[in-house]
């Protein structure tokens, strides 16, 4: 068979057509949605991770409805479909590797579900049902895209340190580089982790810098400086990292030192953030987990320095 014939056969394949059209559809919808957005908020609504992948699956099912295709093949081709979408997000939307790793269960889950829901829909050959489902998904997408999205959360952790509050305070305001090995799997695979903190002066209004493992710096300003008790800092500038850019804004951090009266201190770390990716029931799990591990990496280090 000549190369031209082979190419024609491949392009004419319903499998490939389904995958191509599904991906083109997804990027067109995201493109149109972004261009119609009133302002560049960077918010990614839940429809983009739920409705679009599901519609991608349903589109492939429509292309595959008249060919003999088994469930295992549907699964395999749907995974390929999702991989292409993820790769395109990496190259064209500038998303980071870890960010895509986090989003991938949603993409694969909804694309595979969409393909099987589509198969069941098109088997019934009930146009009314198909149009109803399509309209419902489209309606949810439009309403979701036009709705306001705002989510703020606070994560709090505490640790017991066998040292006085005065000793702990010295290492809370600023601390030397962390030398301990990473033990959180996302840090191990490349997510930046906190390394050191510097401060311009030990007083209210001073500039603080939190330096991450990849060299990124969070610029902070001390807004409460209650010696040996309470340190609050606002994040005034954060790096434009593809893993976090536009997805999460860390707003404020706090360390509270509680004197336990027996030579020990309870150190409480609080962080406030705004999440710009939805659904929050999914992304907040990740945001909380990451924030918690940032807290513990810093607080374990403070404990080590204070108890030395």
């Amino acid at each position: 068979m000549s190369l031209n014939k082979k190419l024609f056969k491949v392009l004419n394949s319903k499998i490939l057509q389904g995958i191509l059209i599904a991906n083109i559809f997804a990027f067109l919808v995201i493109g149109i949605q972004s261009s119609l957005a009133p302002k560049d908020t960077g918010i990614l609504v839940f429809s983009e991770f739920v409705i679009i992948p599901m519609l991608m699956g349903i589109i492939t099912a429509w292309f595959w409805k008249d060919i003999e295709i088994r469930g295992k093949q549907i699964t395999g081709y749907s995974i390929l479909n999702g991989l292409i979408a993820i790769l395109m997000s990496f190259f064209f939307l500038g998303e980071g590797f870890i960010c895509l790793l986090i989003v991938s269960p949603l993409i694969f889950g909804f694309i595979i579900s969409g393909a099987f829901i589509g198969r069941a829909m098109f088997k019934k050959r009930n146009q009314k049902l198909n149009i109803s489902i399509g309209s419902l998904l489209l309606g949810i997408f439009i309403v979701d895209s036009l709705s306001d999205h705002y989510h703020e959360n606070m994560v709090s952790d505490e640790i017991l340190i066998h040292a006085s509050t005065a000793e702990v305070w010295q290492h809370v305001v600023a601390f030397d580089p962390i030398s301990q090995k990473e033990n959180y799997w996302l840090f191990k695979i490349g997510m930046p982790s906190p390394m050191a903190t510097t401060v311009s002066e030990h007083k209210l209004g001073a500039n603080r810098k939190c330096i991450f493992s990849n060299g990124y710096i969070f610029d902070e300003k001390i807004v409460k400086f209650d010696v040996n008790k309470n340190l609050i800092f606002d994040i005034v500038d954060q790096p434009k990292d593809p893993e976090i850019m536009g997805h999460i804004d860390i707003k404020r951090g706090q360390f509270i030192l509680k004197d336990n009266g027996n030579g020990t201190t309870t150190l409480i770390g609080n962080s406030w953030y705004n999440l710009h990716v939805f659904p929050t029931w999914y992304y907040d799990l990740w945001a909380e987990s990451i924030t918690r591990n940032v807290h513990f990496r810093v607080m374990e280090h403070i404990k080590l320095l204070s108890e030395r």
Binding site: R70, G71, K72, T75, G76, I79, P105, F108, G109, F110, I112, S113, F116, I117
Partner: peptide, 21 residues
Amino acid sequence: AIIFDSLMRFWMFFTKPELLD
């Protein structure tokens, strides 16, 4: 439940593909 099942299917595709057969 449907999404959870799809994720199991995804997992099985790599870990025990014969099950899907």
